[in-house]
Nucleic acid binder design. Sequence first.
DNA 1: TTTATAAATGAATAATTATTCATTAATTTT
DNA 2: AAAATTAATGAATAATTATTCATTTATAAA
Lengths: 191, 191
Amino acid sequence: MARLKDDTKIQSIHDAACNLLLKKGFDGLKMADVAKQAKLATGTIYIYYKTKEDLINALFTAIKQEISNELLHPKNQKTDFFSTFKSMWFAYFNYCINKPQNMLFVEQFYHSGLLTSQTLTITDTLMQPVYKFIELAQKNDIVRNLDVYFIQAQIAGAIHEIVKVSLTKKAKLTKTSIQHCFYMAWNSIRK
Amino acid sequence: MARLKDDTKIQSIHDAACNLLLKKGFDGLKMADVAKQAKLATGTIYIYYKTKEDLINALFTAIKQEISNELLHPKNQKTDFFSTFKSMWFAYFNYCINKPQNMLFVEQFYHSGLLTSQTLTITDTLMQPVYKFIELAQKNDIVRNLDVYFIQAQIAGAIHEIVKVSLTKKAKLTKTSIQHCFYMAWNSIRK
DNA sequence: TTTATAAATGAATAATTATTCATTAATTTT
DNA sequence: AAAATTAATGAATAATTATTCATTTATAAA
């Protein structure tokens, strides 16, 4: 018999926080600014999150979940490793291009000291299926034999930096250059 | 006829700031903490830097200069592209392994909104010789034909993420795995 | 339609952190 | 050795920003 919490507000708050981070850097991530950007009163954020740290942990987890869903989506499951890898690579690459603010949020806060160990455990678990997928390819002699964490670092690290270059406008991503980027990734890990 | 500024203090302040960032994330980068870590009084930092923003810009520039010196050191100049590339790759990889705090400092502040455009211009200029070096290899059909900013992003991005994995202790870098990492880099860009 | 309940507000407050400044300590020059 | 000058100190202050709370508003249930 009362007003209900509004799920769209959670999305607004998340979007506002990420967009502010992209626009102003983490120095621009003030609770009042987030509220303003989300078109809410400052206090409203505290109805949805107990503290700023809570907000950051929730947002980090939500983004990681979204990325995991994207990667593990059935549409990426092809009949051979190369095709599946290609599909997943493009899924992640496009995610980063389309939501660079989310990519940067995760990067900025991973080493921020603001994430709880629970958050780190949960988000690491989300990636396990991807690691299993790579390990299988290694057993089948398709992928270089190296700890999967480094394989994933090679692929993701390169994507992140490429997208960041594209953000600075130092260079422009075209259909051709994106193909190059994919084959850089593939050639780096294939046997 | 008076006391002189002490250059070793600048180094202390720089080291303190980077080490705090590595240990506590950018939330731990408080002027008072930096001073304490550098074994100085809070006010002393303000003799060397006008503001916190000044300190960050100076430190960013100093690290970029150090990296540039490392990369362009004559010892890396070999007779062929592959050998020179290999030498430079290891120089940068080892720099990141040995001074991850510096690597993280640069990464965290590049999109922080705290760097002046002057700082960004200066530090970009420092990398120009490296870009020229890659462009020459492209003309000689040794390296994939893609904007050098993306080539450099591919190499540096992968290194950063690999070093970060190693920092989290999720996986350990051995002589063998480092060799793998190098060949991932080389295979990604070679023609 | 009324009532009960919780969301929403935003100014006020609390907490945090950058910066200043009066004072002291060093050290260079004469 | 004394004087002059500037570095160094750290407590006090100013500025910034997270959080609270008294009040208002919206809405689900009766």
